[in-house]
Design a protein around this nucleic acid. Structure first.
Lengths: 126, 126
DNA sequence: CTCTATGCAAAAACTTTGCAGGGAT
DNA sequence: ATCCCTGCAAAGTTTTTGCATAGAG
């Protein structure tokens, strides 16, 4: 894991620190995008918000991390990977990755992301 | 216009006031969802934020208005109409309605909305 | 020793809420 | 006279930023 993260950062000339490793380690294990609170709760040691967001925006600039927002007005983060759609649950606000090929040229605009919103499987059951 | 708005409100037992009429009048003329600032700038008379947001949430509760967020962390509002997709421009943050039929059962979740993100036609040209 | 990352605290940006005054019925 | 709508101002939420200190090389 650590080597993989080291490689990612090396490519962009970003130094490896324990804060950065912690963030990327959690994101690399996540099945779906996570917000600050969720990431922080998975950490062993506490991390300051400032440090978190500053590193996240460093990662975004280097295209290592992508952000998207749910409808709870929080940013959700995931490691950059090939374009895929997301589902956002209006009930529990979770963000779920979908296997969904994005057609970049529907509609005359340049489409980079697709987000579906509604009620997720889990919430539907309740 | 006014009669149409009156009918909308009557159905939900909401009294017609000039603030409410102003908001709904602007929304009914809009081609795409608008945020508070955009709506406010189209108004003849000034309107307080509190009044605006309170009425908007009244409308949402009555299913007269739907809200969605762009990626500028602002809410965008439109009159409720039959399910259609939206395009959000990551460059100018405008929200554009698309003629796009939503398939509610892709992916096992219940899909109510579809949002495409990317660069809009206008920004692409620049 | 120098340079950058971190933590703390304050600022920012939008939205929401409390409260008192004003209008409509 | 009552009820609820409105405006003003303060509070709330998440993210961003400034500054001093700690830490790495």
């Amino acid at each position: 894991m650590k080597e993989k993260i080291e490689k990612l950062l090396e490519k962009s000339n970003i130094k490896l620190t324990s804060a950065r490793e912690a963030i990327l380690d959690i994101l690399s294990k996540a099945k779906s995008p996570l917000n600050y609170e969720q990431i922080r709760s998975k950490m062993q040691a506490d991390m300051d918000k400032g440090t978190f967001y500053r590193n996240i925006s460093l990662f975004e600039g280097a295209d290592i991390v992508q952000k998207l927002e749910s409808d709870d007005r929080k940013w959700y983060f995931e490691l950059s990977k090939k374009a895929h759609a997301h589902f956002i649950c209006e009930s529990c606000h979770s963000v779920i990755c979908l296997d969904f090929v994005i057609n970049p040229n529907a509609s005359g605009h340049k489409v980079k992301n697709v987000v579906l919103k509604g009620i997720c499987k889990a919430c539907k059951r309740v």
